[in-house]
């Protein structure tokens, strides 16, 4: 506003128009349709049954015993992955912050998993790492004389958390390393002369400096991890039972496997509400860090 620039007030608005209008369409049209579908009887296998459904679809979706599990799994998946990646991301970033032989190569190796597509990630871990007979982890377990774990059966959600953390840990490391490089060296040296221990430096210098970077990592991960799908789709298919079903996968099951568009849409409305609750919570918590 203070900027005298772009002459009139019209030009900046015109520049915004394509982005705002397409995003608005992208949001409103599916949202309106989803809400509409959620109130009608719409089953692809029963085209003869039509008409208003009232709150039936919602009732059907909520009373589905899988619903509670799915909400819980969605939040658990999100929470654990964020926690694991932020904590280990910080530790690894601190570890590789100062130069050492081969640091550039270490960085390249560390960030590679971020570029691996979710379907490959999932299949790679399911078969080659976690297979209870031939898998690498089974071999490691046998080497130490332990009984190999049947990951997909005994820890389905845990396995998926491992896969997703493997993918997102590099992202956290990447951001944290970059943030650490802008630390004030003189301040660090001064604190050393004053006899500050490493732990004190971590608490009073590193952590405050990293607050913004941590906020960014949490924000981006929440955006991407609320709707994890491919990893579940190609590994456990939500099972056994509902042990690894998240909300995204449950809606998918209703819509494309049970052909019940009405119930799936009611589920989608729940997913949107949940996402908004998390978003508001998130913006309250870390929004301040993102402002200037």
């Amino acid at each position: 506003m203070s900027d005298a620039g772009l002459k009139s007030r019209l030009v900046p608005r015109l520049l915004l128009a394509p982005a705002v209008s397409t995003l608005l369409l992208w949001m409103i049209v599916p949202l309106a349709m989803t809400v509409y579908f959620s109130f009608i009887r719409y089953n692809l296998m029963r085209p003869d049954v039509t008409g208003s459904a009232g709150w039936m679809n919602y009732e059907f979706f909520i009373t589905n015993p899988a619903f509670g599990d799915a909400v819980f799994n969605t939040l658990l998946l999100l929470g654990s992955t964020v926690l694991v990646t932020v904590v280990f991301g910080l530790l690894i970033a601190l570890l590789i912050n100062d130069p050492f032989p081969g640091r550039a190569l270490v960085r390249v190796l560390l960030i590679s998993p971020f570029f691996v597509m979710p379907t490959v990630n999932a299949l790679l871990w399911k078969h080659m790492m976690m297979n209870p007979i031939y898998g690498v982890l089974a071999q490691v377990w046998t080497f130490f004389g332990w009984t190999p774990i049947d990951w997909m059966t005994d820890f389905p959600l845990g396995s998926i958390i491992i896969m997703i953390s493997w993918q997102w840990l590099p992202f956290a490391v990447l951001i944290f390393v970059t943030a650490l490089q802008s630390m004030d060296r003189e301040q660090l040296e001064a604190s050393e002369l004053d006899g500050a221990t490493y732990l004190q430096q971590l608490r009073y210098l590193y952590l405050p400096h990293m607050a913004r970077a941590i906020s960014v990592v949490v924000m981006i991960e929440v955006i991407f991890l609320l709707s994890v799908f491919a990893e579940i789709f190609v590994t456990t298919a939500g099972g056994p039972g509902t042990a690894s079903t998240n909300l995204a996968f449950l809606i998918f099951t209703e819509a494309l496997l049970n052909f019940d568009v009405g119930a799936a849409s009611a589920g989608a409305v729940f997913a949107i509400i949940l996402a908004n609750i998390v978003a508001i919570f998130l913006i309250r918590m870390i929004g301040k860090n993102l402002e200037n």
């Binding site: 900027d3 995003l23 989803t34 929440v222 955006i223 809606i251 989608a268």
Partner: peptide, 29 residues
């Protein structure tokens, strides 16, 4: 370069569309 009072809100709104799970839009799309 020409921020208004609403710039922050529009940016936040844009981000919030990204938080809506894709699966919510799957059937309509």
């Amino acid at each position: 370069f020409t921020p208004t009072r609403r710039t922050k809100d529009i940016l936040m709104w844009m981000l919030s569309t990204k938080m809506m799970p894709a699966v919510g839009a799957l059937v309509p799309i």
